[in-house]
Nucleic acid binder design. Sequence first.
DNA 1: GCCCGTGTTGAGAACGGTTATCATTACTGA
DNA 2: TCAGTAATGATAACCGTTCTCAACACGGGC
Lengths: 134, 134
Amino acid sequence: MAIRRNTWQREAVREALERSEGFISAQALHTELHRTGSPIGLATVYRALADLSTEGEADSLQSPEGEAIYRSCASIDHHHHLICRQCGTTAEIEATEVEAWASRVAAEHGFTEARHVVDIFGLCADCTAAAARA
Amino acid sequence: MAIRRNTWQREAVREALERSEGFISAQALHTELHRTGSPIGLATVYRALADLSTEGEADSLQSPEGEAIYRSCASIDHHHHLICRQCGTTAEIEATEVEAWASRVAAEHGFTEARHVVDIFGLCADCTAAAARA
DNA sequence: GCCCGTGTTGAGAACGGTTATCATTACTGA
DNA sequence: TCAGTAATGATAACCGTTCTCAACACGGGC
Ligand SMILES: [Mn+2]
Ligand SMILES: [Mn+2]
Ligand SMILES: [Zn+2]
Ligand SMILES: [Zn+2]
């Protein structure tokens, strides 16, 4: 349990995640891996993503539809995202205002050890334009 | 489809939701309804909760475990929650600052139809005190 | 390089929450 | 009262995720 062996599968998941723009689900990443010639198992993709997440190498969050989505995480630091619910592209956003607001509101209600979930889902400029044409 | 009929089931779900403190899942609410003598079907509970949610009479959000949880919503207006991850009690919070921030950030990146997820999980005052004693 | 112990893999089954199906029930306006 | 039709609920289907376990393969020791 302690020792971790190196397998091409783990590395393939890490690379595919880095290659993909924005957040992506385990199943989508599995499809992408097969498409590019990596016959990896779905369970292994789930395991690798879970590991990357606990090690802090990937962000994970629940989409509004209740699916877990992952993203390669450059900065270990806490940050937030603007996510296109059509194509999945994301922008990291600074949220100093929200940080201050969250801690203040928690303190005002006597709450401690507050963690917040702040994400914005919308349609990106491209998908908005595409939707307008249709 | 347009006309909505009144049934005791719908009303039972609404009342049970109001009676329960904090957020509750559809399945837990179904169990509670049966326990109190309402032989309602699970599918009907799901349908009633979905309706209450779209009508703005209930808040819904995804728990970190990926289950949809619901809460009777006093104010029809859009708002956010401060949730104790120990005992589940919640406080509704005003978030005018965050509303403005969210729409501004979305607009700055060309995003449209933006919806945001803003929730704060922490330990309420009581649970903080209890934790301090232990 | 070869061996062996054990961590890892993956196909498929199982799981848990949610939604669809559809025959039956029961509101409601006429 | 009575059709017309929305609502119900037992059940099956669905879908994302996790579990199972036999086969596999990484890697330290030789
Ligand atoms: Mn933050
Ligand atoms: Mn808001
Ligand atoms: Zn997009
Ligand atoms: Zn508490």
